[in-house]
Each structure stands twice: as C-alpha cells, then as structure tokens.
Design a protein around this nucleic acid. Structure first.
Lengths: 255, 255
DNA sequence: CGTGTTATTGATAGATTTCAATCAATGTGG
DNA sequence: CCACATTGATTGAAATCTATCAATAACACG
C-alpha cells in the first residue's frame, strides 16, 4: 500500500520577477530556447514561478488542466493511480521538462516533487496566446511531444516484454544518458569500465512503480548487480555504474 | 517465437489523383479536417496514396524516417522488437491515425497492415512546407500528439500494474469506445446489458503482444469471460460484449 | 476434404510477488 | 548523549500468477 499521505497539492511559494527568463539556468534545456532575447520578457510575463517542497504535488490527476508547467530545477515524479492504490510512475521530470501537454480538460497524471522543485507556471489561455504569436514555440512543443511519444513507446516495450534484470539495467543506462558529460564516456573495447556516478532522487518504491515491479524485486536485482560487480551502491541515493556496456547489453535483451 | 516471416516493407500500389481529399471518407477523422476545402488540393498534391496488403509493413523500426502517413482505411499494428524477437505492440492504427511523428531521423516502431490498409504518404520535407503554410495543421498535430501521449500513459499503467483479467477487460472496453455509435450505448442501472459487437482485425498473438501477455493467457482469459457470461465469441475475429459495465469495473481495477 | 495456421485447453515450471523479519539511517525527547 | 520510534532498504521463505511446454480442436483455404 503506497504512502498516500501528504499528497495535498500544496504549493509553497509564488513570486514573479521581470527579466528572470533571460538568466534562467533552465533556458538552454527548455522550450523557451526558441524564443529570442527580445521577446523573452513577453514569455516571462505570462508565467509565475512556483516552488514545490519534496513530497508535495503540483499536478493532480483528474483535476481541471488549467496550467502548463516548465521545470526549472529539481525532479518530479509523474504517476497514475488505480482506485485501490496501485501506482504507475510514467516518468521523472527533470530540468527543462515541459508538463501538461494533455489536451483534454483534465490532467492525465499527477506530479509530485522528489526534491525541491521549481517550475514556471503558465495559464492555459496565456500560453495559447503565446503560441499564436510565436509559431516557433508551437513547433518546439510538437517536437517535445513527439520525443516523449518515442520515450513512452520504449517504456511500453520495457513494461510489456522485459525481465526485471533488463528493466533495472535499462533504467540505469537511461539515467547515465542524463549525466552532464553525456558523450564518449566509455571506451568501445568489450568490458571497458567507465565509472559513472548516478544520483537517484527517487526512492526504491518510485523506481519499482516506474518499472512495474515491487520494491523487493528492485532491491534484490540491484543487490545482484552489485554482487556481479556491475555497480556499486555507496548510499541509498547513489549508484556507481562500473560496467556500462554490460548493463547496456542487458538492457537491450542481449544476454 | 513470433512469426517474423514476410516482414518485408513491401508496398503494393501507388497512385495519385487530384481532388481525392475532398471526398476522402477518412477526412472527418483525420488531421486534414482543419484544412478548408479551398486549400485541400494543396494538401492532396503533397501526398500519394499507398495500398498495403495484410501482413506487409510500411514502416520499419530503425529505418530513416522519410515519410509521414495518414491511415485512410483498414487497421495496422505498430510494434517494437527486441533482438531476440520479443515484441511489444504499442498500438493499433485505425482510420484517421497520423503516423510518423517521431522527430528523430529514424522510425521508433514498425507498422504492419492487419487487413488491406490505405494510407496517405507525405514526404518529410513537403509536410514541413505544409505546416509552415497552415499553422492550424501544426496545432492539430500537437493536439494529436498530446492525445497519443495520454493514451500511452494509460497503456503504461495497464502494462505495469494491471492483472491479465484487467488488461483484457481494458482492451475490450477501449475497443467498444471505437464503435461508430459511441455514446449512450448502455443504461446506467447496474448489470445493464448492452450487446456491443466488436470486430477484431488482429490475432490473439497481436493482442497478447499489445497487452504484455502470452497467446495462451489471452485465450484463457477470454474463455473465462465467456464462462462468466461477460462476452460471447461468435468467431475468432468477433466478440460480443454482454456486460459492458462489469467489464468496465474490471478494467479500472474495481473487481 | 486434406493441410497448415490459429485458437483453445491442460499440466507444469518459473519469475516475481507477497508476507515477514532484519538492518540501516535519521530524528526525537527525556 | 543515548533509548526509542520511524522510515526506507535489504534479505529470506512461501505463494501466486503467468509463462512455458504439450496436446487438441477449430478454422481458413486451396
């Protein structure tokens, strides 16, 4: 049975500030990067900045979808619930993630902060206006949505057809791809070790709900990876990837 | 082990015809419906009509994504494969479905015709031009993509957290929603029977790969539904839904 | 009508879940 | 500063759902 406590959509801090967009550290990763410096204030005026404390949610599945969000710092988990409490985490939203694309009148998922999360919040109507004025923004959103679609299909493959080991390997590999130095990080030679350190802001329970497994299976599988010297587990929130390519093979179903 | 035979991307018939769009029976269900009658020829000139025979595929996962497609008749299955042949069907594309939204340079999935499928094919570059000229089309595509995203998240919930019974029930309910007379089809009173007849163009194997199960589990579960008088199975391709609301409860996890 | 494909049904096996206990990390209050 | 409680993670044993293996049965098609 999941926690379900403190799942109030409590939002802590709201403020607005002209010119923030220009120096926003999330800008290079966000849809905003298609807006020129000159027009950026126009964008900023349509948004408010919201800070969400860990454990609190800022989107509730089923609620009327009045806002769009852009994550500027921190990580949130996105999830859907069944009436009896079973949960499916559909994704983790990091810096630059645009949320709320659900066209319908209500949100299709909930979003809860894993650490302190800051988001830019746009009202539906104001964003509509922005899209009319900036066709490039609309194009960018289509791009974003298409990419998410590809990711979702990959996740369906994982959930429908991969073993627990393959799921965990896929998860770890996907996480390494998010690391800042995300290219040429390991040699091609078989068995080359790379030592990538992952920070996991989510709990084992979140990982389980993301991969369609139980906490216990996640824990057991990671322990086995550790025993096989594929990873190290310095702490509950850190994982050191020792054999990237072995995990990658596992993730794709080879072996 | 899946079939894997005749998975050649064989396309059978190609022809073009000015003015076809105007009388296309798929128009009301397609993205084209945002284009006015006057501009419709412009759209038609950018497309070619392709007929695909059952069992043949017109999109191959991994191939360079040179075209977009719009299904005008028939049904196709969309799927991804693991190297060892495990398959995940990510969706079924019926009349009006727009395909190829993958932004990247290569397709993220394969598409294979279940029955005779006709599609409108657009080259990437020509569609790009159309989008520049018709902002409404771009808006519509964003709408389509967002909707598919919602559907994909629902499918993740199914694959990650639902039981075999719940998956089959969800599948049947989703299929009834596609029926032409798709509103007010059954009374609210508990236990009301509705008798909706479903035509299933896909095999049990396709259903299994769609729901993350095996053929045997699909067959057994349907047989059990039959034994419980929830459905009838007049033929391999037809299913009669006797108790829509009972199945709906099952689908949502209330059982 | 054979003949091959697809679907059903049965028996068994196996991967993951469930139930349960232990351990570790963190925080509280006397 | 140290018992005590709380939460999250790990590990073990048993149960269960679904997969696998295997045999029929139903169907489509030439």
């Amino acid at each position: 049975m999941p926690t379900m406590i403190r799942a109030r959509p409590l939002v802590v801090d709201v403020h607005r500030d002209p010119g923030v967009c220009l120096h926003c550290q999330a800008r290079p990763y966000s849809v905003c990067n298609v807006i020129g410096d000159d027009d950026l204030d126009r964008l900023g005026q349509a948004a408010v900045t919201v800070t969400v404390q860990p454990g609190y949610s800022f989107i509730q599945e089923g609620d009327p979808a009045e806002h769009f969000f852009n994550v500027t710092s921190g990580t949130a988990k996105l999830f859907k619930l069944l009436p009896d409490g079973r949960r499916q985490v559909t994704g983790f939203a990091g810096v630059g993630t645009f949320l709320g694309l659900a066209v319908s009148t209500s949100y299709a998922f909930s979003a809860e902060a894993l650490d302190v999360v800051r988001v830019c919040r746009f009202s539906r109507t104001k964003l509509r206006g922005l899209l009319d004025d900036f066709p490039a923004l609309e194009k960018r959103l289509l791009e974003v949505a298409s990419n998410e679609l590809v990711v979702a299909q990959e996740q369906m493959l994982l959930l429908g057809r991969k073993t627990a080991r393959e799921r965990l390997a896929s998860f770890l590999i996907a996480r390494t791809a998010l690391l800042p130095h995300c290219q040429g990080q390991n040699g091609k030679a078989g068995g080359a070790s790379s030592k990538e350190q992952l920070h996991l802001p989510m709990t084992r329970s979140d990982i389980a709900d993301y991969l369609g497994l139980t906490i216990e299976t996640v824990s057991r599988t990671l322990s086995r990876f550790k025993g096989e010297k594929l990873i190290e587990i310095p702490s509950n929130t850190e994982i050191l990837v020792l054999r990237h390519d072995t995990l990658e093979e596992l993730a794709t179903g080879l072996s």
